[in-house]
Write a protein that binds this DNA or RNA. Structure first.
Lengths: 194, 194, 194, 194
DNA sequence: AATGAATGAGTGTTCATTCAT
DNA sequence: GATGAATGAACACTCATTCAT
């Protein structure tokens, strides 16, 4: 049970991510996950209870990883500009490094939101947003950043990168998002600097 | 096709949009559309051939409306700034005026893209993008706008609005997107001005 | 659609009764009914909605037939003794003539009672019991029959036949119940005569 | 086996009876029994081998208790009338005192009969019936009781009580069966007295 | 004796689609 | 153009049972 070999549970999660990526949650059948993971149907239900819970577990895990990385970059930032750019960098870096998880998160929110996990999820989202906002507040108060409605900062900071990520992850754009890391960071800073 | 009374075909499309909005394409059954439209299953298949074609028809129609509106605003623009802002305005205005169609387009691309209509759709998208780009080219050449990789302009111009639209249309943000019309337009211009 | 040939719906009902008789409701799979009836799964669900509704339809139909026959015999009775014996005769005759339906009704009440049809069923039962009781009331008032708690008459009149029917229908007794027609009728009259 | 504390085996049997009573044998899953008993699945299979064996054990135990009680009352009877009434009393008393076990026995025969225990069960039943019949034979020979086909005595003696027990145990009748103890005993004697 | 992860055949049900009328 | 009964492949999920620890 050490890291010697993957647990059944993790094997199922891995297989599910691969399937969801390729076919979407609705397009993935339990049988597909079973075949890919090597587990039995019964085992899948023993561990997760139903198909949606597998998706939810994956979603929660992915988002947690992204948020942790974002936090990490924010911790190293000092000036307002550094904080703003860290936000853009975190997004771009994470998507570029974890395209499968990113694609899954981007395209599965609506499905997972109908799940029992939805409440927990939106609570966590609020906590994260709040934490980030606390970081920016002093800079806004000091006029180094524009004071805008709270709900709009996210769209200004990561909206362009978010948009491009969808393009890239769906194959409609060819260039790896990390090539535009600086452009998105600059756009973010331009959009909110005081 | 007069306005005398809605055609069966249109009744089906309206019912389908309402269902897709509420349950998603995958979550909508032919039976649901049948019940809402008052048509019979047979009638639906007579007019559209299959379920996906209904979605595709709706998608094509919605996108065409949006593009026409965008074009309209572009036609009235002269300076680079006006053109850029017209793009943001068009997006914000259209989403605000047609939230159901916007939600449908935003959340159904992945499904519709697996359809036969996909090729036609991406061709039209290319044509539209090309037309818009032709409009901007002189301004880029003259240095009034930054020269950037072509595939990234869309994300910079409408990315933030796009992102906020998702928030608003999914209920995660409360303020009507049109309240932020100017903010998104300014951000668009800041991101690409020369 | 006249009586020229059985409707799909009736074919399904017939096949279901045969299966339920042989394997019980729980022991019968939808697939078994499908195979026996020649209908498709879809057709079964088109007509009945789910497995339990087939059982419920059969139950309602069978009970209605029995009650109609009981009523018929009661209509021909005049004295208290004739009425009491008619009740026993009706039970014995019906079971002997319709062993499959009788077996189904006897062994499926608990399953059908968990169904949506349960309320309707117990209402009909109450109506029937009330009608029969109205018939007996004058005889009870005149002392030609014992006055006993209402809920107990049924058990005294048909209890022995009911019990033997279970024995015979389950194969634990060999003699056709109709051989004991008079014995059960006599026992019924002995149990309640004034 | 002292009364100090229940054995695992007994805890499982108790939980199973409660579940069977509430949901029926088919409606009860091994998981339900596991949850109610606090035992593990493995433990249940260690003690009983399979689900049906739990039901069979319960069935055998319940029937043995009833028969022992019946025998006890018969041992105290001397006249034909006392013997006949003892049979009715035994049934009524036992059902009233053990409604859960009675309900289980009444509604589970068909399931248990498909079990390996079926042969053993019907053998024991035959032995019991034979013993009871031996008791009555002299009285029949002496004309104090009617001579009737052997297979019909049971239905005449306990049929009404049996029928009412079903009514009461299923909730369709409200009055505790023991209130009708004498009525059923009288009816039994009336039905078979010489 | 006990545990609980793992198994996999089997179940009821759904639903897009067809087609005779 | 319209109807709705019929089709059947596909699906998510259940559950008795096994077995390594």
């Amino acid at each position: 049970m050490t890291t010697e070999k993957k647990s059944r549970k993790q094997e199922i999660l891995d297989a599910a991510l691969a399937c969801f990526t390729e076919f979407g949650i609705d397009g993935t059948t339990v049988e597909m996950i079973r075949e890919r993971s090597g587990a039995s149907v019964g085992s899948m239900y023993h561990h997760f209870g139903n198909k949606e819970s597998i998706a939810a577990a994956l979603y929660v895990e992915s988002l947690a990883e992204y948020k942790a990385y974002h936090q990490e970059l924010m911790d190293g930032a000092e000036t307002a500009e550094q904080g703003v750019k860290a936000t853009a960098y975190a997004y771009v870096d994470w998507v570029s490094a974890n395209p499968e998880k990113a694609r899954f998160v981007l395209y599965s929110r609506s499905v997972v939101n109908k799940t029992e996990a939805a409440a927990e999820l939106s609570k966590r989202a609020r906590v994260h947003i709040e934490a980030v906002f606390q970081w920016f507040e002093p800079h806004i108060a000091a006029g180094r950043m524009k004071r805008l409605p709270k709900e709009i900062y996210g769209s200004l900071l990561t909206g362009p990168a978010h948009d491009y990520a969808r393009l890239w992850l769906s194959g409609r754009a060819k260039t790896d998002i990390k090539a535009y890391r600086e452009i998105f960071a600059e756009a973010a800073w331009d959009a909110v600097k005081g």
